[in-house]
Amino acid sequence: MTAVGDRLLPGASVARVGDFARRFSLTRGALAANAWFVYLFFYAPIALLVVFSFSADRNVGRWGGFTLGWYDDFIGNTSIQNAIWVSLRVALLSTVISVVLGTLAAFAIERFRFRGRQAFDALLYLPIIIPDVTMAVMMLLFFSEFFDLLNLLFGADLRKGFASITVSHIAFNISFVSVVVRARLAGMDRRLEEAAMDLYASRWKAFRHVTLPQIAPGVAGGALLALTLSLDDVVVTQFASGPGATTLPVYVFGLIRRGVTPLINSVSVVMLVASVGLVLLSLFVQRSRGGGAVGPPGAVAAGRSRRRS
């Protein structure tokens, strides 16, 4: 009996372990396959886009031999150059202004109690939550009413363009900057500011010499987010721009809707390279700062997803 048991039991347990291991490796294999599929899914379209931007065929999906002609077209195209110029100016200006306003807003909300603070807090969150399309509609109606009013009051005949685009980008970027900076401020030890003031620093000097260096990674992260949101935005910009000026994404969007051409391929590749360059730059900055977070992933994720539908 015991002998039989001895012979049976080890065998049984081996079988069970083997079964377990097989199933385990099966799950593992499936997980790895899924991961590779995701990466293929992410990168194959981009790779194909890059490849076809060098194709001589007028048909965007057909290989017709290697050419740099579409890049020549891109370089020679003054509308695109103008759009790039507008994009860059809007992005830089709106980033600078929203970083200043957003950082101040974050500091006020995180460190002070004042009347209207809760309302301000809610107002600060709304541009993050609000759908792109709604915000776009808001800007359209606002500028139409606002310019009518100016016309009525001063006889000024203003058109939508660079200024209205910048104004609308600041309106959403302030919130994103402030959310990222706030997360950083919340994680900062308040005693550091008290210590600075105990060591004879005025309020301003404590902010300048202690608070600001401490939240710098957050401010940089907020700036980067603002910059890419501004450079990427299509929907809001489309409604805030006019014949006077338009940004590159809006211009390209218009081209795509009229029908795809290989020129769009080359412009797209350039835009892609620019945004990947920004990512790598941000990763590099993060690393050189000792891995300081660029902001709460939630905020960044929400920002990215909100502003790009």
Partner: peptide, 18 residues
Amino acid sequence: MIPFWSNFLVRNYAWRVI
């Protein structure tokens, strides 16, 4: 992170080619 941060319009456009 790279697709996460890169231009949404362009990434959508890539599918036109495919």
